[in-house]
Design a protein around this nucleic acid. Structure first.
Lengths: 211, 211
DNA sequence: TGGCATTCGTAGCAGCCGCTACAATAATCG
DNA sequence: CGATTATTGTAGCGGCTGCTACGAATGCCA
């Protein structure tokens, strides 16, 4: 695989092109985005796009992976690394609120928002999106399971239900961000949802419960 | 407006046609659904469809209204009528779980699922969907406000945040239903989310606060 | 019975879709 | 220098999109 091949060199930066394509898919949606729009945004012609990325589906899948690693890998990692469950969840959800409502970038989540925009017969793209959505639930579940084992949650907590619910909250935050909700609103959703976490029976700080 | 006009009578039932169109939009999504598909499902030709409904947008908007009144009007009304907040919320969310995961009907919510499938330049359809989504949040807010006044919630509860969060949970339930989550999973989400509601401070069983 | 009003099926419009054939261009190789 | 190899822009393919012109069919009303 020669880094510098023999033929005529490519006249555009493939990574920047991928970034541009991501922006188009993000703002317009997978379905509504057209190859012509993608080409215009990148500044190339259709044959160059197809030579570099294959076809529209493959380009979207590559943009999708770029999206995940660029925007979400770090928050998920931080959730896994944080020792305290509640602090970790709060930080993750606040980071999500920032991403979903950023003004530097289209609002809402590429993965959540395109669940409806992709025609039910293009299996590959649909499956890729579904798998990413299920991965979110699995990541929450893993973290909650650990919290259960470490005493951050009571041992009988329904961690699967909690994981599914936080995944639902995340999806809802994406939808409301797309509808124009500002970052503060998303943060209030994040904070409110944290109240779902059941408290561990206190080891017994001598019963002075009064506020 | 004569119920029995003068010209040749219509050869199909307009209401049944609307129901069929709703099913197509529901399963395929607004964007991916084509006029040809709609015609095939109804059993008519394009000119009949355009004569009866106007165009694709108008047909969708009418199907949307039919959807809301048929499936959601009653649960929302029940939420408003139920005296006890928690019982009302639980019943509403369980009803939602049943609708969203029903096997008689496509999974997921027409309003939530089509947020991404409609091209950003067809303003009318997009606005109609957004307004319905915001109406959900407003309905939750109204019910929570009332609960606050009636003592079902503490007076300092952040009802706006709670309303937005329940709306988010509902949107997430729709997404997960579309991804194949069974009714039981959605019900566990519903139950888990109810834990967000803050408990009212007990009216004062003389200060024996220690649990 | 003969208008008249409305809907019907056939057939096809212009326009956009994803995608590609083709020849010219620009680089590395011997 | 050719020869080779890859990318470029032009131009356009077949197919599907939402939508409609048209004349035949079918009902009410006078």
């Amino acid at each position: 695989m020669p880094a510098r091949g023999k033929g005529r060199p490519r006249s555009f930066d493939r990574d920047k092109a991928l970034q541009k394509a991501l922006e188009v898919f993000w703002t317009r949606g997978y379905g509504p985005a057209t190859v012509a729009e993608l080409c215009a945004a990148i500044g190339i012609n259709p044959p160059s796009l197809y030579a570099a990325f294959g076809n529209k589906d493959a380009l979207f899948l590559e943009a999708l992976q770029h999206y995940e690693t660029t925007y979400w890998a770090s928050p998920w990692q931080a959730l896994a690394d944080e020792a305290d469950l509640r602090r970790g969840m709060e930080r993750f959800l606040f980071a999500a609120a920032a991403i979903l409502s950023s003004r530097d970038v289209p609002c809402g989540c590429l993965v959540v928002q395109n669940s409806g925009s992709v025609s039910p017969d293009s299996d590959e793209v649909r499956d890729a999106l579904r798998l990413l959505r299920e991965a979110s639930k699995a990541a929450f579940l893993a973290r909650l399971d650990r919290a259960c084992a470490e005493g951050d949650l009571p041992p009988d907590a329904d961690v699967e239900a909690l994981a599914a619910t936080f995944a639902a909250v995340l999806q809802g935050m994406s939808a409301q961000a797309r509808d124009g909700a500002p970052r503060e609103d998303l943060e209030r959703i994040a904070r409110a949802s944290l109240a779902m976490l059941p408290v561990t029976r206190a080891p017994a700080p001598p019963a002075a419960a009064g506020r």
